[in-house]
Design a protein around this nucleic acid. Structure first.
Length: 586
RNA sequence: GCUGCAGUAGCUCAGCCGGUAGAGCACCUCCUUGGUAAGGAGGAGGUCACGGGUUCAAGUCCCGUCUGCAGCUCCA
């Protein structure tokens, strides 16, 4: 995640500053809670945190008091001095302070490595640094404590839960302000908030946690995306398939999912005395279709595509609006090909990914995840597949960062990370070669020498899931949908009652051109304009006496200061141009 | 799943040390016909998440469940 602004430079880098501020915070917390124990307190991407064991649970209300105490610490603190100690001395020093977590951290430091403490005059902490030279360089008005939350000791859910205080720190008050503004913008774009305010989607506990209801406006977005998606896929030789939502357990035993991911799969239901499952993935269904007849090498590649709705039992605490749910629709496809076709197939996917992501104005980066420690399949097969992924990327001019050993046990893959309008990174498309399922389901084809061969199987999603992708789009666009996705890109506003007939004619004309354009005639114009703006309608066609007389429309455009006057047919073709070019602006 | 916090009208929220509910916006009706981000008046709307408990009395206190939120762990 990167911010859309460049922070000011300081005497040392921001990480050192934040690390130092986290020490100051720990110092302050220990003053307020003398018995407190401290764990770790590193700098992070936009700030820092420190984990504590405290006599009581902190609330947000405690933060201002701790901040105040931090300023007292800054008044008294001086240079950050680094003190190297021999292990036994270090142990004694920590034992004397009663900081048991620190003692454990000390034991983690490998033999032979330097053991250092940092002392800022009022407090000493076991720490490898680096820090600012002196507490005096820490700006008193450029840090802020943001939140408290639980965090496991050593990140392990079997361990005790500590209390984590998050804060942020910058070299200038201006940067802090910009960062806080940024956080505000993030909150204003939160898809859960916009989803409620703009009537986009809802969740209903009676139906179940993590199950999304798409309301009409968002249903429209999805429908348009689906139409476009199918068009792109049909043009590229993918065939639509549809597979059932329920399958006998045997399927997932064969696939291995039931053995390895049982807690991700929804509980079984009894059907004629046999356990069945709601599908957690689409691959077995596509494989069943592939396996329903013997294939010739001439048939390959075969590309099956499905907007397949799957259900996965995500832990309750991880559910999050549309972004993390228990039922979602993947834009799934499986490619069955010969080894010599793999490179072409991957290249095709890379093309498609580029077309789709660019359409939304997403920037992206790609990572090749190579063979992990534990893996299935022959080394030569892995080598071939990785080479095919590399070569395909090169052919398409796609730069690949390498995530060494990051592949799944069943094959290498390319993962795409996308960056949204706020500079945040999202998990994006993925293309995975799979050596596992073809074995498990015994896929084969007859090659030119009439020998039975194992096809290569590729899983790929571009959007990922409609839920997560569209949830992300809401935040990326701040729900200001481009015209091609907008359910109601324009409203018609007659100034007075006399213009209502003309407004209705205009609405019909726009409707005939494919644009839903309600006439809003009730109440003062200012009010109707405000309402449309709040509903994030980008275009308002205003009709007053003057316009009707001249047969024109006054067009108010979101984000554009000047109004325009144009003929109805000009408006229709203008909107059509924005729609058909999938323009990102209005 | 874990820790902490929360759940009062469609939304945002108020409701003190227990005494059986309130505002703004939205909605409905009427008036208003308004030239580019809030015209006026009236009205309707709540099993205070759900289930127990304490109490003469529970939105308020206690326990449990569900859901949400912030993280952690995990993930498309």
């Amino acid at each position: 995640m990167s911010l859309p602004f460049q922070p000011q430079e300081g005497p040392v880098d921001l990480y050192a500053l934040r690390h130092s501020v986290s020490h100051v915070m720990a110092d302050a917390v220990l003053r307020l809670f003398p018995g407190a124990k401290v764990a770790i307190g590193p700098p992070i991407e936009h700030g820092f945190y420190y984990d504590f064991e405290l006599p009581r649970a902190l609330t947000e209300e405690d933060l201002p008091r701790i901040e105040e105490e931090m300023r007292s610490v800054l008044d008294e603190a001086g240079e950050f001095r680094c003190i190297a100690l021999e292990r036994n001395e270090a142990r004694k020093k920590i034992a004397a302070s009663g900081q048991t977590y620190k003692l454990a951290l000390l034991e983690d430091i490998p033999e032979g490595e330097k053991i250092t403490f940092y002392d800022h005059g009022t407090w000493t902490d076991l720490c490898e640094g680096p820090h600012v030279p002196s507490a005096k360089v820490i700006p008193r008005d450029a840090f802020k404590l943001l939140s408290v939350a639980g965090a496991y000791w050593r990140g392990n859910s079997d361990n005790t839960m500590l209390q984590r205080i998050y804060g942020t720190a910058w070299w200038s008050k201006k940067d802090l302000k910009q960062y806080l503004d940024y956080l505000e913008e993030v909150e204003a774009r939160d898809h859960r908030r916009l989803g409620r305010e703009l009537d986009l989607f809802s969740l209903h506990s009676e139906f179940g946690a993590g199950l999304v209801f798409w309301h009409p406006k968002l249903g429209y977005v999805r429908r348009k995306l689906e139409e476009w998606w199918w068009q792109l896929h049909l043009e590229r030789g993918y065939w639509p398939v549809y597979t059932p939502h329920v399958a006998g357990d045997q399927v997932y035993h064969t696939s291995g999912h039931l053995q390895n991911y049982a807690d991700m799969i929804w509980s079984p239901m009894d059907v004629d005395g046999r356990p069945h499952r709601v599908k957690p993935m689409n691959c077995p269904g596509h494989i069943a279709i592939f396996n329903s007849r013997r294939h010739s090498f001439r048939d390959l590649p075969i590309r099956f595509a499905e907007l397949g709705t799957v259900y996965r039992f995500e832990p309750s605490g991880t559910l999050h609006g549309m972004l993390r749910v228990r039922g979602f629709t993947q834009d799934d496809a499986h490619l069955f090909c010969r080894p010599d076709q793999l490179e072409d197939e991957i290249a095709g996917v890379i093309d498609l990914v580029d077309i789709i992501l660019r359409t939304f104005g997403y920037r992206y980066t790609a990572y090749l995840a190579t063979r992990p420690e534990k893996y299935l399949g022959a080394d030569a097969v892995w080598e071939h597949a990785q080479q095919a992924l590399r070569a395909a990327a090169e052919r398409r001019g796609l730069e690949l960062a390498v995530d060494e050993g990051g592949g799944v046990f069943y094959g290498p893959k390319i993962d795409f990370k996308i960056e949204d309008a706020l500079g945040r990174e999202w998990q994006g498309p993925t293309v995975q070669v799979d050596f596992n399922l073809p074995e498990r389901f015994d896929l084969k084809y007859n090659d030119s020498g009439n020998e039975l061969k194992r096809p290569v199987m590729v899983h790929r999603v571009v959007l990922g899931s409609f839920e997560r992708f569209v949830g992300g789009l809401i935040e990326h666009f701040a729900a200001w949908w481009p015209v091609w996705l907008h359910a109601t890109p324009v409203v018609v506003l007659p100034i007075a009652q006399e213009q209502v007939p003309a407004a209705k004619r205009l609405s019909q004309q726009l409707g005939a051109a494919g644009f839903h354009s309600p006439v809003e005639a009730d109440g003062p114009l200012r009010k109707r304009i405000r309402d449309a703006e709040i509903q994030k309608v980008p275009y308002m066609a205003v009709l007053g006496g003057r316009e009707v007389e001249q047969g024109v429309v006054n067009l108010r455009t979101h984000g554009v200061a000047e109004q325009r006057t144009l003929k109805p047919e000009e408006l229709a073709s203008y909107l059509a141009h924005k729609r058909d070019s999938k323009a990102l602006d209005y």
